[in-house]
Computed example of a mutant assay.
Amino acid sequence: MYETYRKLRNSLGYKDSDVAKGTGITKSTFSDWKTGRSIPKMDKLKKIALFLNTSVEHLTAEENIAETMTTYEIIINLCKQRNLAVTALEKDLGFGRGSIGKLKTGQTSAERLQKIANYFNVSVDYLMTGMEINTKEKYDKTTRIAQEILNNKSLQQLFNAAHDAPPEDLEAARALILALKKKGSK
Rank of each mutant, 00 (worst) to 15 (best):
residue 99 S to A: 10
residue 99 S to Q: 08
residue 73 E to P: 02
residue 95 F to P: 14
residue 21 K to Y: 05
residue 125 D to V: 05
residue 96 G to S: 10
residue 124 V to T: 15
residue 37 R to V: 14
residue 112 R to D: 06
residue 5 Y to I: 03
residue 54 T to A: 12
residue 59 L to Q: 10
residue 125 D to L: 02
residue 93 L to F: 08
residue 14 Y to G: 04
residue 34 K to R: 15
residue 8 L to F: 10
residue 121 N to M: 04
residue 24 G to L: 06
residue 60 T to C: 12
residue 10 N to P: 00
residue 103 L to D: 04
residue 75 I to H: 01
residue 124 V to N: 06
residue 69 M to A: 14
residue 87 T to E: 14
residue 43 D to H: 09
residue 68 T to G: 04
residue 31 S to H: 12
residue 43 D to M: 05
residue 54 T to H: 08
residue 119 Y to T: 12
residue 74 I to W: 03
residue 74 I to N: 06
residue 103 L to K: 05
residue 82 R to A: 13
residue 98 G to L: 09
residue 39 I to K: 14
residue 46 K to L: 04
residue 58 H to E: 15
residue 90 E to G: 07
residue 77 N to C: 13
residue 41 K to R: 15
residue 22 G to Q: 06
residue 120 F to N: 07
residue 92 D to C: 01
residue 64 N to W: 03
residue 48 I to T: 10
residue 66 A to F: 02
residue 24 G to N: 09
residue 46 K to R: 07
residue 32 D to G: 06
residue 95 F to L: 15
residue 43 D to P: 01
residue 52 L to K: 07
residue 100 I to V: 15
residue 9 R to K: 09
residue 83 N to P: 00
residue 19 V to T: 07
residue 22 G to C: 02
residue 122 V to K: 08
residue 123 S to E: 03
residue 11 S to W: 02
residue 68 T to S: 05
residue 20 A to S: 15
residue 23 T to A: 07
residue 15 K to G: 08
residue 28 S to L: 11
residue 57 E to F: 13
residue 113 L to M: 10
residue 77 N to M: 15
residue 62 E to W: 02
residue 20 A to K: 06
residue 116 I to A: 09
residue 103 L to I: 12
residue 59 L to F: 08
residue 42 M to V: 06
residue 60 T to G: 11
residue 101 G to L: 04
residue 104 K to V: 11
residue 38 S to I: 05
residue 83 N to R: 03
residue 89 L to K: 03
residue 54 T to R: 07
residue 30 F to V: 13
residue 69 M to N: 12
residue 62 E to Y: 07
residue 48 I to Y: 03
residue 107 Q to S: 10
residue 44 K to P: 01
residue 33 W to S: 02
residue 52 L to D: 04
residue 43 D to A: 07
residue 38 S to T: 14
residue 35 T to F: 05
residue 40 P to A: 00
residue 82 R to Y: 05
residue 120 F to C: 04
residue 7 K to G: 07
residue 46 K to H: 01
residue 93 L to T: 13
residue 111 E to A: 08
residue 125 D to K: 01
residue 59 L to G: 05
residue 88 A to K: 15
residue 120 F to G: 06
residue 85 A to I: 08
residue 116 I to Q: 07
residue 9 R to C: 00
residue 34 K to T: 10
residue 65 I to R: 09
residue 45 L to T: 05
residue 123 S to M: 00
residue 30 F to A: 12
residue 28 S to N: 13
residue 63 E to S: 11
residue 21 K to M: 09
residue 18 D to T: 06
residue 79 C to F: 10
residue 18 D to E: 13
residue 9 R to S: 00
residue 111 E to T: 04
residue 6 R to F: 03
residue 108 T to N: 08
residue 70 T to E: 08
residue 119 Y to L: 09
residue 69 M to V: 12
residue 81 Q to N: 12
